[in-house]
Design a protein around this nucleic acid. Structure first.
Lengths: 173, 173, 173, 173
DNA sequence: TTTT
DNA sequence: TTTT
């Protein structure tokens, strides 16, 4: 509400295909594992070093979930902007555990597909991400709970596209 | 819509009071001049140098305009997040000119008031920034070129507060 | 090194005083717990809700550590920019655990002190944050596991100041 | 010097090849024109609209200039992070003009090549951007004024790579 | 024109 | 544990 900023931005690659699950009332939630890496040359040894960081991204935004479901695949490079959230859960032995995730929900959420360099992907022609016809009722506040696709996952479109926050989220973030 | 990012973030101080004007259909637009500075010590001379950069910020977001109108004053420090836009206009002699501004509009817009260190400001009690309860009609599609305050400018509240994207419902911000 | 972005930005308040420890070779490391909050009004009940997120920030940057040590206190509001890093550790029972932290290290690290609105703080006069004149040995490759202050913690300066990346020369910051 | 943030981030495409010029003392400066676009559906007419914004990016960072010179071409998509700077100049008639540019200089500067979807580019094998062997004397503060390439511009490498700030800049920013 |  |  007041005077705070909580922002995460990543450009990285998906380690696996996104996992889409649904809440009891049918809302989709997408999970992605995204890798970012850094390389540097060791000051002393001159050796080249690399460190890869893995991030868990959870997409609550219904609009972005649809995009993830249809256009995002293992290996793809994406830009995401979301918020940090640490969640408490219990492991099998009942012990408290915490997981920190990057949450894409509400207006701050952003996802930009960055063309995969692998080029192995199917390059969508007229139906690329850029034309996904995401008829923006987000901005108008209408709550078209238009089901969303089932499970048809497109081939990697590799076309690039920007998708940002949607208004029909009611889950606080 | 697709594959692009255009983001500006500033933390700086207002050089003057914001200027609020209105479109013919009554929508408010706020203009602010914000200074950011940098200092460094010259590598050769050891001299300390400072450079101040002045930024023009234009607030189209109706909700943020109300906030600016009520809580933001000359000298205040704020964080803003918006987009770059270059606008063409004609000077007196009819020559084309361009001005680059930082636009706060739509969902990407964000404004956080940062408590003024001067402390000269009037510290609002129960009616602080966090309770301003404005409702914006941009996101809802309504175009109520309504009311909104006239010119009553509060004293510098110095209370700090975050105001983001135009929303009139419960979606957190 | 290549094609990745891993960035976190927070504006929040410290829940406790920073904790400064030192590595065996004398380098300081600062830990801070920073809170960010969000408020929203529940769409259905109309109830006002708040959620506070706590973040663990670890400062490896020697220059920023000095700043934290001298100027940052419980309750202060700061802006930080760093990177996400997830660290594995073993709990008492030898089980693997992971913690995600925001790391301030190297050139991407940034810390801006935002004047505390509480104003309870001691306002440093001539020795304000802007004059701290620290020189960092990280960027220069020197590993002077040197000096640096012991434990003298200033009162909350509330003066505001920006401290970024490790540098001991004239490059502006 | 203290308490300010001035940050611009873009993901966009180059409208033309970068232009590299040199200062009298041989330092390279690269200029790029980068486009970002937005699309939306008009609330009233339902019409699809697009607006493209053009940004002028000036690279003072010597390391990033080399990268731009070798790897960045017309049409390429890149991520850049820099600072806003408004510069005054005189037109032919001696009138004052101002231009706002995004400056990549010093530590805040960042450039990430995003694989071009066009795929028309020559895909560098072992000498791709990722292997550019930018032997990081930046971090060590050494000032290897190693000339830099002349004008050999590689074909679009499409390989992606991240390049960030260098220490050997002395031009303030 | 602000601020430190 | 902070802050508003």
């Amino acid at each position: 509400m007041s005077g705070y900023l909580n922002k995460v931005q990543l450009i990285g690659n998906l380690g696996t295909d996104p996992e889409i699950r649904r809440t009891q009332d049918g809302r989709p939630i997408a999970n992605m594992r995204i890798a970012t890496s850094e390389s540097w040359r060791d000051k002393n040894t001159g050796e080249k070093k690399t460190k890869t960081e893995w991030h868990t991204v959870v997409v609550f935004s219904e609009g972005l979930c649809k995009v993830v479901e249809q256009y995002v695949n293992k290996g793809d490079k994406i830009f995401i902007e979301g918020q940090l959230a640490t969640r408490k859960w219990q492991d099998q032995s009942g012990q408290d555990r915490w997981s920190t995730e990057i949450v894409l929900q509400g207006f701050d959420a952003k996802l930009i597909m960055l063309p995969s360099s692998s080029g192995s992907g199917y390059r969508a022609g007229g139906d690329g991400a850029g034309d996904y016809g995401y008829d923006d009722d987000r901005a108008s506040g209408r709550s078209s709970s238009s089901s969303s696709s089932g499970s048809t996952r497109g081939q990697s479109s590799s076309s690039g596209g920007s998708f940002s926050r949607d208004l029909d989220d009611d889950i606080p973030f």
